[in-house]
């Protein structure tokens, strides 16, 4: 693992969808056993590659609108030696095909890489039915499943390339839009190992996905108020990097979690479990407060569901204030 953090965190020029499409098609060209399955949302992540579907016979397959069958089929393909990646919007992976992921996938030792796109508020104008604040929650108690949320395109590319080599069940909750650049090209990431992307001593913000950029902004604001905040990118939500969580608890004495997901059974809950059992320090959670999603643009939704840097600042101050002298 060797990360190089970007100096400026402006939006990437490439969308996450473009990064995924480029990476997976390159992998399919390198290894004919790698497959990409779609359930009629191919255009949304593979873009123009769907028009070249004939270039990847037996590799790029549009199953139709049938996510449960797609994932069951992917499990069968993996049983027979193929390496399938299967994509749909996150709710249709995590909710619609939940039992297929459990039985045909995890319980059966299958080798399927699930890509759930538009997590949380990133579903934007598709609204409440498409806005998964519960996908991690719905999958976190599945043994043998690794859950990740790539932070930017550099990481996404690295993780997808690693997944092509790894055996087992993986769920990647993944943005499609352009996101803030956090890492420089050439960074390498180790699944299960969190990255400290900013040092600090008074409080640690443990974030994932789009909340990492918000955490960095929050850390800057806190700095101005004389609070030194550490920022940890916890891109592997399961298995959690417990060592890192304990280290941060010990060294900074207070934790804030930040996730584009429900405060129940996501990153925040996972961190609390580790903290409570090992080294009890104050924890505050930034996340969606057990409510349903709704339509809107990203800026509106961030405010509506309290997922802004300002929300992290408030919680960080609260956590730091709760520290025992």
């Amino acid at each position: 693992m060797s990360i190089i953090t970007a100096k400026e965190h402006e939006l990437s020029t490439q969308t996450m969808a473009q990064v995924y499409a480029e990476t997976i098609t390159k992998l399919m060209e390198e290894n004919k056993d790698i497959m990409e399955l779609e359930a009629d949302l191919g255009a949304c992540i593979m873009g123009g590659k769907m028009d070249e579907i004939d270039k990847y016979p037996g590799q790029l397959i549009n199953c139709g609108i049938q996510e449960a069958n797609m994932i069951g089929t992917a499990c069968g393909l993996s049983a027979a030696g193929k390496i399938p990646f299967a994509h749909s919007f996150a709710p249709f992976i995590a909710r619609r095909a939940n039992d297929q992921i459990f039985i045909s996938g995890c319980y059966s030792d299958a080798n399927v890489k699930l890509i759930g796109s538009d997590p949380g508020i990133m579903a934007a104008y598709n609204g409440g039915t498409h806005m998964p604040f519960e996908d991690v929650a719905a999958l976190r108690a599945f043994p043998a499943l690794t859950i990740m949320e790539p932070t930017d395109g550099v990481m996404l590319k690295s993780l997808i390339r690693q997944l092509a080599e790894k055996k087992g069940m993986y769920y990647v909750r993944c943005a499609r839009k352009a996101v803030a650049k956090i890492y420089e090209e050439g960074s390498e990431f180790e699944i299960g190992k969190a990255n400290v992307i900013k040092n600090g001593t008074d409080v640690t913000i443990i974030a994932a996905g789009i909340m990492v950029a918000e955490a960095l902004k929050a850390a800057q604001i806190l700095e101005e108020d004389g609070i030194s905040a550490r920022v940890v990118d916890m891109f592997t939500i399961k298995p959690l990097d417990e060592e890192m969580v304990c280290k941060c608890a010990e060294e900074t004495g207070a934790i804030v979690t930040a996730e584009n997901h429900s405060i129940y059974n996501g990153l925040g809950s996972a961190v609390c479990e580790v903290i409570a059992e090992n080294i009890p320090v104050p924890v505050e959670k930034v996340g969606v407060q057990d409510v349903f999603g709704e339509v809107g643009d990203m800026e509106y939704l961030k405010k509506r569901f309290h997922l802004t840097a300002a929300d992290i600042v408030i919680k960080a101050k609260a956590a730091a204030a709760r520290k025992r002298g």
Binding site: I65, P91, F92, R95, R96, Y125, N126, G127, G128, T129, H130, E294, V295, G296, D297, Y300, R304
Partner: peptide
């Protein structure tokens, strides 16, 4: 599709008078 709208992109019976059932997740 405006913030706080009664008319979201997909049918929602809690938001729109006359919509009988919420849909959007196909099937």
């Amino acid at each position: 599709n405006q913030p706080q709208t009664s008319l979201p992109s997909h049918c929602d019976h809690k938001k729109t008078p006359g919509i009988d059932v919420t849909t959007g997740s196909l099937g």
